[in-house]
Nucleic acid binder design. Structure first.
Lengths: 190, 190
DNA sequence: GGCTTTCTTGAGCGATCACTCAAGTATATA
DNA sequence: TATATACTTGAGTGATCGCTCAAGAAAGCC
């Protein structure tokens, strides 16, 4: 019957994700989004409902892509090598709008206010931690790491290290590559 | 000649620091500050000049206190034991308004906009990293860690781990004490 | 007490916030 | 081509943002 939208919804979500990732929730205004997505207010609200609803979509996209990339690496090179590669991958990507983790930034910004988006970011981080734990468990079953380690504990420490690494990678006075090397090297001692 | 202010400036700065620390820069409005500090707009601006100027004061206070506490621990128990205690200390304090590092939160929130406060937070983080490096150097000179390590590199990795730990400690699904133990245990292998 | 000087008060400034909605436009069906 | 059905547009909503300033209140010195 009627006309179709003139935009690519997935592409808009990706653009919005990059904006939110870089500037945060409060730091990104509707005006910013409208000009970046080339959408007038009416179209924006028809397409996404609200700023928060779009933010939630971008969080989902971000988290899904992250888990998918990690698991693809694990399929290609095995669990331990994927875990050793991950630190380098997350700080190396040049096209990324920010080095710091978008989930962590969201959680840090909004958790104190009890915002729904903080809970969602927290859930996505928990999913990511579970993925790390799965890989540690597989590495253990494959004999790549010793049998005495608790995969869940390893995953929590590893994720914490990655979060710190990614935050450090935003700084000019820090050599993030060295930190990534050290995190990866620690996995050889397990 | 005239009357004195009815407030304790240092106490107000500490209160403002706690608010900013918890809620962030954009997340803390003048109304929040006025009601928390019990100050009307006129008094607020007479005392501090602007929201950003007060924020800068709170950053300074936060950073000074952090370095002072670390160095006091080092004087009391030696450099290596201080570095091993620090992870537990930063996540253990119950009266703190947030576990995550205020400098890191500030930097993450404002760096992408080139805000002055992000630069200031970055400088304070660099100072903290230098303090860590000093302690690693002293520990090395005392023979507490091997002579083949670069204290600056150790400090960068250690600070990154601490930042990750403090961010993780905000989460309910993470056992931050275990991570702190693991970070401290790593120092014994140096 | 009289005077000076500062602190305190709170109404209100322009700008920006997220968001709405009615009018106009373009497209797919018939 | 005519009609129905969306999509597009942008002026405009009330609320809140950081901040100003003139008037009033209080404390130190004579």
């Amino acid at each position: 019957m009627p006309r179709k939208p003139s935009y690519d919804r997935d592409a808009l979500i990706a653009q919005a994700r990059d904006l939110f990732w870089q500037q945060g929730w409060a730091g990104t205004s509707l005006k910013d989004l409208e000009s970046a997505l080339n959408l007038k207010p009416g179209s924006f609200y028809a397409a996404f409902g609200s700023k928060d609803a779009l933010y939630a979509l971008t969080l989902e996209r971000y988290a899904q892509d992250g888990v998918a990339r990690l698991m693809a690496m694990a399929d290609e090179m095995g669990p331990l090598r994927a875990l050793k590669a991950q630190p380098h991958v997350v700080i190396d990507e040049r096209e990324m709008p920010a080095r710091a983790c978008m989930l962590a930034k969201t959680y840090a910004e909004l958790q104190s206010k009890g915002h729904d988006l903080a809970d969602k970011a927290g859930c996505h981080m928990a999913d990511m931690k579970a993925s790390f734990a799965t890989l540690f468990r597989r590495a253990q079953q494959a004999g790549e790491i010793g049998p005495d380690h608790d995969p869940d504990r390893l995953a929590a420490r590893y994720q914490s290290d990655i979060l710190g690494l990614r935050l450090s990678a935003e700084r000019r006075d820090v050599n993030a590559v060295e930190i990534a090397e050290d995190i990866a090297a620690d996995l050889d001692r397990l």
